[in-house]
Design a binder for these strands. Sequence first.
DNA 1: GTAAACATTGACACCGACGTCAAGGTCAAG
DNA 2: CTTGACCTTGACGTCGGTGTCAATGTTTAC
Lengths: 122, 122
Amino acid sequence: MRIGELAERTGVSPRSLRYYEQHGLLSARRAANGYREYGEEDVRLVAEIRALLSVGFTLEDTRPFLDCLRRGHSSGGSCAESVEVYERKLKEIDEEIRALLARRAEVAAQLAQSCPGCFVRG
Amino acid sequence: MRIGELAERTGVSPRSLRYYEQHGLLSARRAANGYREYGEEDVRLVAEIRALLSVGFTLEDTRPFLDCLRRGHSSGGSCAESVEVYERKLKEIDEEIRALLARRAEVAAQLAQSCPGCFVRG
DNA sequence: GTAAACATTGACACCGACGTCAAGGTCAAG
DNA sequence: CTTGACCTTGACGTCGGTGTCAATGTTTAC
C-alpha cells in the first residue's frame, strides 16, 4: 500500500504520515522508485496515533504505545511504559483543570467587583 | 518617563511594551530624539494588561479595558464592553474545563481498559 | 573624550502538528 | 506523446507573547 491509500484508509493526510515518519513513529520500506510501501499493520499504528492525539496526547507521548503494538501486544496501552504515560497525562490534565478552575474564580471575582449587579453562575 | 523606567516600574520588558504599542494597546508621545515618553497613567495601563494576561486573556481581550480606563473610569472592567469580555472569557473557560473533564474521563477509561488493575482516583 | 547604559527599528527563534506550495520524478490510460 | 494522478523532498506559514540579536543613534557619568 502506498501513502495515498494509507491516507485514505486512515483519514490522515499524506503530509501527516510523512511527519510521523520523520519523527520516528512510523516506518515504511521503499519501493524501487522511492515510494513508501506500507503494510496492513500500519493502519493500526496510525489509528493508535490518532486515537491518542484526539485525547490530547502529543506525538511524542504516543511513541511507547506504538512500540508496544510493534512488540505484538493487541493493545498499545498494555505495556508498562504506556501506563506510565497514561498516569502522567492524567496528572497533567488534573493540573490543567485545577489551574482553569482557579482562573475561573479570579475572573468571576474581577467581574463581580467591576459589575456588582452581574450574576455569575458557577 | 522613558521605556526603561516604565519597564522597571511595571516589571514588563521594554520589548513587551513596544509590542503592546505595536498592537495599539499603548501609546507614547515621542521626544525630539525619537525616544518614547510615557506618563504616570501608563503605569496603570500596563498593570491592567498584565493582570488580564495573567488570568488567561489574550492581548486583544484587554483592549476594551484599556479604553475604559482612558475614558476616565477608575476600573478597567466597569464598562459594558469589558463586562462582555468577562462573560465571554468565563464561557470560554467553562468550555475548556468541560473539554478537559471529558478528556480526563476518556484517558482514565483507556487506562482502565489497558490496565484493569490500575486504580484511578477522580 | 569616551565608555557605559539606554534608546531606536527590524527580524529571527520558539512551540506543535500540520497545511500548502514549489519543483520535480513516476506511472497508467488515452 | 501527453495528460493527470500520484509520489518525492524541502521549506515557509500558522498562533501569541515574548527573548534575543543586529546595527545604529543618544544620553549620562566620569
